[in-house]
Design a protein around this nucleic acid. Structure first.
Lengths: 338, 338
DNA sequence: CTGAAAGCGCTTACAG
DNA sequence: CTGAAAGCGCTTACAG
C-alpha cells in the first residue's frame, strides 16, 4: 500500500489538490463548509499524513528550528553531556512543539560542519546556546537566519539574545556569602572566554567584593572547565588557598567541589561553604543539598523557543531579553568559622 | 542571492544536473576524473549545499532516524528529564552522525501523535527507548518501519531488540548485597509494567533470594516511579520495614533514597546499604558515592545507532542483542550491621 | 562516460 | 468558492 497523498484525498473528496492543500493549511475561508467536511472525512478514513519534506520544498519553510549546542569542552563530541543543555533543550522542544514546529538538534565542535547540516535541512531559524568562539560564531552568521543566542554576549546586529543578568546574579551570590561573614571567597569556574557568560559572572563577583572592601585576590579565581572532575581538583586548591567559601559558576563544578572536600574530610558548610549556579536537579541530590542560583532553566528554554518563533513570525520580540535569577538556600552555605 | 542548486553547479561545470547528482552521491565511477574535478571545484567555489528535503522527496530515503523517548511518568511532557535518556540519545546521535544520518527526536506520551510527526518526516527507521504500553506500541508497529526497541521486552516479529541481561544483572546485584550479609533487602523500583525492564529485574531479584534461601517478602518490594522524589519517600518505608539494604533499579531513585536517609540521620552504609542501577554521572556525585550496576549507557546508545543502521542497510543484525552489565563498587554498600 | 525527461508530494500565484 | 499549471531541488530508470 503506497503512501496516501494529497491527490488521493482530492480524488476521494472530488475536489482539486489545491483545495485540499488549502483546507489542510487551515485556509478554510477558501472553501465551502461542505467541501471542508468532505475533505476532512477523506483525510480521516484514508489516514492521510502530509509529507513534510515535500511541503518544505514547495513552501520554502520547513517549520524546522535548528538548535545548536557546543560539544563538551573535552571534545568528546557528545550532545547533552551537560544536564544544563538537556534541560534547556527540553524547554525549547516543548515550546516549539506547542506551536507546531520541529527541532533539529545539532552539536557544534571546533572543526565541525554541523551548521551545514542545519542549512541543508533548511531550518527556518536558529537557537544557539553558549556560543563564544568567534570562529564558530562567524559560521553561524553567514547564513542570515533569524538567530537567537542563549547565554552569549557576542554582539551582532542581526542576532537576538536571551540570557540572565549574569553579572547581577553573580554579584548577589557573592554578597550572599559575604553576608555569612566570608571574606576569602573563591570563584570556581570554567574557562573565562570572550563573549561568554563567565566573563560577566567574574565581573559581578568583583563588584561584590569591591562593595564590601574585600581586596580582589587573583589566586582565588580558579578557572578550569564546567565539569564535575574539575570541581574535585578545585577542592584541593580551595584548601591550599585557605578559602572559607566557594562560589561555583555551575552546579556541576560545585558537585565536584563537594565531593573533593568530602574526600579530604572537610565539613560543609562548617569548614567551607559552597554555592552553586543553575539549580540543576543534581543540586538537590548531593550532600549537603546545594545552595545555588536558580535560573529556571526549563522556563528559559521555553522562552527561547517562543522568542525565536516570534522572531520568525515577524512579531518583533525585543533584541535582548534578560531574566532574573534568584538564590535558593539549601544546606551548603553557612556562617564562616571563627 | 538565491540558494545555489545542483543546476547552478551543472552550468558552472558544463555538465548535466544528473552528472552532478552522481558525483555528489559518490557514484564517481560514472564520471570521468576530469568531470569529477570540475564539479567538485564548482561546488567549492559556489558553496553548494544539497537540499535534503528535495533529496528525501526524490529518493524516498530521508537519512533521518526517528528516536522516540517516553515522556516522563508525571506526564509533564519533557524530553530528557531523565539523564539516562540524555545519555543514550547522545550515544545514538554520535553513531548516526558518524555514518551520515540524522536524528529526529520525539517524545511519546499517552495520547500523543508524535509518531505521526516522525511519519510525516519520512524517517527511514525508528529507535524507541523504554516502551512498554501496548497502545503506544501498536501505533509504532503500524508503520512498518525498521524498528529497534531499546530496553523493552515487548515481542513482535518485526522488531529488533537491544537490552542488557536485566534479570541476570538484578540477580548479581542482589547477590552482591547478600554477600555482604544482608537478608532484608528491599527492591526499590518504578512501576512494574508488562514488557518493561523492571519486570525482569524483579525476577532476577527473586532468583537471588531463592538461591540464598531468603524468603521473598512482598512488603520489601517498593514500587513507585523512576524519580528522585520517589526515592526520598521510599527511604521512610525502608526504615519502617527494617530493611538493611536497598537495591534500587535506577540511580535516580537511589539518589533519592540516600537523600531521604540523610534527612533521618541514617548512616550509609553503616545502617543501610544502597545499591543503584545505571551508573549515571550522578552516582559519583552523591554522598556516599553510589555503588551501582553499570550498563555503559553511552556505548549502548552508540550500539543502538549502529544496529538500526545495519538493519536499514540490509546487513541483518541479530534480532536480539544483549549486553552485559557489571557492578561498580563505590561507598554506599557495606556489611550488614550485627 | 553523459544526458533528456519524468516524477517525488506538496504550494503558489493566477485566473475564473 | 474552486481549478489548471508551473515549480520547489533533487533522483531514477532509461537511452545512447
Amino acid at each position: 500500500m503506497a503512501r496516501v497523498t494529497i491527490k488521493d484525498i482530492a480524488i476521494a473528496a472530488n475536489v482539486s489538490a489545491m483545495t485540499v492543500s488549502n483546507v489542510i493549511n487551515a485556509r478554510t475561508s477558501k472553501a465551502s463548509p461542505d467541501t471542508v467536511e468532505r475533505i476532512n472525512e477523506a483525510i480521516r478514513t484514508l489516514g492521510y499524513q502530509p509529507n513534510l519534506s515535500a511541503r518544505a520544498l514547495a513552501s520554502k519553510a520547513s517549520r524546522l528550528i535548528g538548535v545548536v549546542v557546543p560539544f563538551t569542552e573535552d571534545q568528546n563530541q557528545l550532545l547533552l553531556d551537560n544536564p544544563f543543555y538537556a534541560e534547556v533543550i527540553s524547554g525549547i522542544e516543548s515550546a516549539l512543539r506547542a506551536r507546531g514546529y520541529f527541532m533539529m538538534l545539532s552539536g557544534l565542535g571546533e572543526t565541525s560542519n554541523e551548521v551545514d547540516v542545519l542549512a541543508q535541512w533548511n531550518v527556518d531559524a536558529l537557537i544557539a546556546i553558549g556560543i563564544y568562539r568567534e570562529g564558530l560564531f562567524e559560521r553561524l552568521r553567514k547564513r542570515h537566519l533569524p538567530t537567537l543566542l542563549v547565554d552569549s554576549y557576542l554582539t551582532d546586529d542581526h542576532v537576538h539574545h536571551l540570557r540572565i543578568a549574569d553579572d547581577q546574579a553573580a554579584r548577589r551570590a557573592t554578597e550572599h556569602l559575604i553576608a555569612h561573614g566570608h571574606r576569602r571567597i573563591a570563584l570556581v569556574t570554567g574557562a573565562v572566554r570572550d563573549g561568554g557568560v563567565i566573563e560577566q559572572r567574574l565581573a559581578g563577583y568583583r563588584l561584590a567584593l569591591d562593595a564590601a572592601d574585600i581586596p580582589f585576590d587573583p589566586d582565588l579565581v580558579l578557572a578550569g572547565s564546567v565539569t564535575f572532575d574539575w570541581g574535585i581538583d578545585a577542592a584541593e586548591q580551595l584548601i591550599a588557598r585557605r578559602a572559607t567559601a566557594a562560589f561555583c559558576t555551575a552546579d556541576l563544578i560545585a558537585a565536584g567541589v563537594l565531593s573533593g572536600l568530602h574526600q579530604r574530610d572537610i565539613d560543609i558548610p562548617g569548614d567551607i561553604s559552597v554555592l552553586g549556579f543553575d539549580n540543576l536537579p543534581v543540586s538537590q541530590m548531593v550532600y549537603p543539598a546545594l545552595s545555588t542560583v536558580d535560573q529556571a532553566i526549563l522556563d528559559k528554554g521555553k522562552l527561547a523557543g517562543n522568542l525565536v518563533l516570534d522572531l520568525l513570525e515577524g512579531r518583533k520580540p525585543p533584541r535582548e531579553t534578560r531574566l532574573e535569577a534568584r538564590i535558593i538556600e539549601r544546606q551548603s552555605v553557612g556562617p564562616v568559622r571563627k
